[in-house]
């Protein structure tokens, strides 16, 4: 099952199913496999400012 992670600063959602193709992250990329250098495409914060969405 794919999970979603929420940027706690600006509300952007990283969806593992969709990845972030524009930044070179393929659909299906697990959060732990997203490089630490990746930043929120909307507000620029790092992975540590994201939290798991538990719905």
């Amino acid at each position: 099952m794919f999970r979603q992670y929420l940027c706690e600063i600006c509300g952007h959602i990283y969806d593992e199913a969709l990845g972030a193709p524009q930044e070179g992250i393929a659909p299906g990329t697990r959060w732990e496999d997203v490089p630490d250098s990746w930043v929120c495409p909307d507000c620029g914060v790092t992975k540590s400012d994201f939290g798991l969405c538990e719905s």
Binding site: I9, C10, V39, C40, G44, V45, T46, D49
Partner: peptide, 10 residues
């Protein structure tokens, strides 16, 4: 300013 994009919350 220099117009660079940076992450202000950081």
């Amino acid at each position: 300013d220099d117009g660079a994009f940076y992450s202000k919350p950081r």
